Simulated scan of single mutants.
Amino acid sequence: MQLNRRPVASLWIGDKLQYLNQLCLKSHLRHGHPTTLYCTDEVTNAPEGVNIRPASEIMDIDMSVVENTSASFLSNVFRYKMIQKTGAIWIDCDAFCHKPFPDEWEHIYAGHGMRGALNCGVVGIPQTGELMDRLLDYYDNLPDYPAWWNKNQRKKMDRLDPSIPLPVRIYKTERTAFGPQAFTYFAQQTGDIKHAMTNDVLYPVPFQLNDIFYDPYGRVEGWFTENTVSVHLYTNGTKPWWRKNVPLENSYADRMCKEVGIDPSLALE
């Protein structure tokens, strides 16, 4: 396996990957992308070839904040600091590599779902520039309220206990305020929204239909186009049953595990 393409990287908070995470990480190796997984704990079941590094190389992870939000919360700032420091493409651990990322792509992001907002599950942006500066300034100097919030959103946050740390209050008010909401807003402010790819490139299947990956009769590939490079599997929205049981034979999850060489039974929740 020649790892001669652009590097990709992700973050894992915890000590054990689930089989879909193993599948997605290994899928990038298969297409020649050096793959780094920054970890807060000692992860022992990453696929062979994945470069395991301490998350502290990029930033300190405040686990008390994670415990009051979610494991994905701090990944929203981690991804931009990682890109700024290393130049790697950010990949969520549930982004399956369908085809390699072309070397010439400087801006890698797209809309997802059926509402048009940008997702930040797969991100490539310049290491320096206004978009990077705006994103990092937002996280490093949190405003009282995100600038794009309306009156009702502000009132909702005002009802929370003011002693709760500000980032936690923002998260509890709007779960995506640090993810797609922020990325979409600042890309609009800087004009980088014009570089956004169409959904089919990175998120061909709308997240509202994520069960299709486990349906042996589902036509997942019917959503793909010749432009599809990554397929987001949306594990945060996966029903618990699919995380605790091997995928049904001939489902997309089953077929990709067999194709890439992952045994789901060894990494169930």
Results as ranks from 00 to 15, higher is better:
4 N>M: 04
6 R>P: 00
7 P>Q: 00
8 V>H: 03
10 S>N: 08
10 S>E: 05
13 I>F: 05
14 G>R: 04
17 L>A: 08
19 Y>M: 12
19 Y>V: 11
20 L>Q: 15
21 N>M: 04
25 L>D: 05
26 K>F: 04
26 K>E: 14
36 T>P: 04
38 Y>N: 00
39 C>Q: 12
40 T>L: 14
44 T>E: 13
47 P>S: 01
48 E>D: 11
48 E>N: 13
50 V>F: 08
58 I>L: 04
60 D>R: 15
63 M>W: 03
63 M>R: 07
65 V>L: 14
67 E>Q: 15
67 E>V: 00
69 T>S: 13
69 T>V: 10
70 S>M: 15
72 S>Q: 14
73 F>N: 00
74 L>M: 07
75 S>I: 10
76 N>K: 11
78 F>I: 01
78 F>L: 05
80 Y>S: 09
81 K>D: 01
82 M>S: 05
86 T>N: 05
87 G>D: 01
90 W>K: 11
95 A>R: 07
95 A>G: 11
97 C>I: 02
100 P>V: 12
102 P>S: 06
104 E>W: 06
105 W>Q: 11
107 H>E: 08
109 Y>K: 01
112 H>V: 14
113 G>E: 07
114 M>R: 05
115 R>F: 12
116 G>K: 09
119 N>H: 15
120 C>P: 08
121 G>K: 03
122 V>Q: 03
123 V>K: 08
124 G>K: 09
125 I>E: 10
131 L>R: 07
131 L>M: 03
133 D>P: 06
135 L>G: 11
137 D>L: 10
143 P>C: 12
145 Y>V: 13
148 W>K: 05
152 N>Q: 13
159 R>M: 12
159 R>E: 15
160 L>G: 02
161 D>E: 12
162 P>H: 02
163 S>A: 14
165 P>K: 12
166 L>G: 01
167 P>A: 03
168 V>R: 06
169 R>M: 03
171 Y>C: 01
174 E>R: 10
177 A>R: 07
178 F>S: 12
180 P>Y: 06
180 P>A: 15
185 Y>I: 04
192 D>R: 08
194 K>V: 14
198 T>W: 13
199 N>P: 10
201 V>P: 05
201 V>D: 11
201 V>T: 12
202 L>H: 11
204 P>C: 01
206 P>L: 00
206 P>T: 02
210 N>A: 04
210 N>W: 06
210 N>H: 12
212 I>K: 02
213 F>K: 02
220 V>W: 09
221 E>D: 06
222 G>I: 01
223 W>G: 00
227 N>M: 03
228 T>C: 03
231 V>E: 00
231 V>F: 05
233 L>A: 00
234 Y>P: 03
235 T>G: 05
235 T>L: 08
236 N>L: 13
237 G>Y: 02
238 T>W: 10
241 W>M: 11
242 W>H: 15
244 K>T: 07
246 V>C: 04
247 P>S: 06
249 E>W: 08
249 E>R: 07
249 E>G: 07
251 S>R: 08
252 Y>I: 01
253 A>F: 09
254 D>C: 02
255 R>K: 12
260 V>I: 15
260 V>S: 02
263 D>R: 10
264 P>M: 11
265 S>L: 08
266 L>Q: 10
266 L>N: 15
